[in-house]
Design a protein around this nucleic acid. Structure first.
Length: 271
DNA sequence: CCGGACGCCTGTCGGC
DNA sequence: TGCCGACAGGCGTCCG
């Protein structure tokens, strides 16, 4: 489910409820997520105060005095802060019991999400060391994309979804960014000019920022912390719109699979 | 190193 | 109505 805007929305939703709180204990009803949720994690977080929350790529980091809890929502994960006694649903796998009678509850039907423990700093964890720059940061721009794309023959859509190049751009926002930049998703990454990469970097920043402002994109089941959907779905110009007229030229939006992921584009506006 | 394919899971939807 | 395959917002791993 979640790309960067949805994870950021999630962070903003839960942060006010978690700041200054202490974790009493971790309660697991299902430990078989992407990786097993080990009892070692339970032991590490029990009794610890939450000192800070942050996002890195699509990971949420809960910083505790002795390290960080690293949380990933996978394809179908979501988080709510609820009264501790709220009965769990069938896919409510993990609760972090808090010291104010509430709990942070992870729901994840497909179980592609994960929980890790990192002795500080979290950025040294193997899952985080290879990550590229945050897209909404000065370190990310067209020059970066242009340099990293040299010699690459893979489609540009695959290229910008590679977290070693830039983090947080998932399947929806990759299609949307390329559409707004006028670049065909299948064009080899190494055959795009610096000028066009400038446009692409600008598009990525703008699309992600706009999506965050709308609380993310709800296609099926994504909900914000308060249970409301994200409203960026109505701003999508190509994703999920196969056969509909291109908002710019009226040509029908096309769909095809690129790198095992469905991709949407306008064959007339994107070259 | 790079690029492509696969697998992990469950739920939903469209076609027959 | 029921079944069955395809597909879904991610990503680590393996293979050539």
């Amino acid at each position: 489910m979640p790309e960067l805007p949805e994870v950021e929305t999630c962070l903003r939703g839960i942060a006010p409820h978690l700041r200054g709180r202490r974790i009493l204990r971790l309660e697991a009803r299902e430990r078989r997520l992407r990786w097993p949720v080990t009892p070692q994690i339970d032991a590490a977080v029990a009794g610890q105060p939450i000192e800070a929350l942050q996002r890195r790529a699509k990971y949420l980091l809960l910083d505790l005095p002795s390290g960080s809890l690293i949380l990933h929502l996978g394809m179908s994960g979501s988080l709510r802060v609820l009264p501790a006694e709220t009965p769990p649903g069938p896919h409510d796998h993990i609760d972090l019991m808090l010291d104010d009678g509430k709990c942070l509850r992870l729901r994840d039907p497909r179980r592609f999400g994960s929980l890790h423990w990192a002795a500080s700093p979290a950025t040294d964890h193997p899952l985080l060391t290879q990550l590229g720059p945050e897209p909404v940061s000065p370190g990310f721009d067209g020059g970066h994309l242009h340099r990293r794309s040299a010699g690459r023959r893979a489609p540009v859509k695959t290229f910008i979804m590679d977290s070693r190049i830039v983090v947080g751009v998932g399947n929806i926002y990759a299609s949307e960014s390329l559409y707004r930049a006028g670049i065909h998703p299948q064009r080899p990454a190494g055959r795009i000019s610096r000028t066009r990469y400038d446009r692409l970097a600008t598009s990525i920043k703008a699309v992600l920022a706009a999506a965050i402002a709308e609380g993310g994109t709800t296609l099926r089941d994504f909900v914000q912390e308060d249970g409301n959907p994200g409203y960026f779905a109505r701003e999508l110009r190509v994703y999920g719109r196969e056969g509909e007229p291109c908002p710019s030229c009226g040509h029908p939006i096309r769909q095809r699979r690129i790198g095992q992921r469905s991709s949407f584009y306008c064959a007339r506006c994107q070259r």
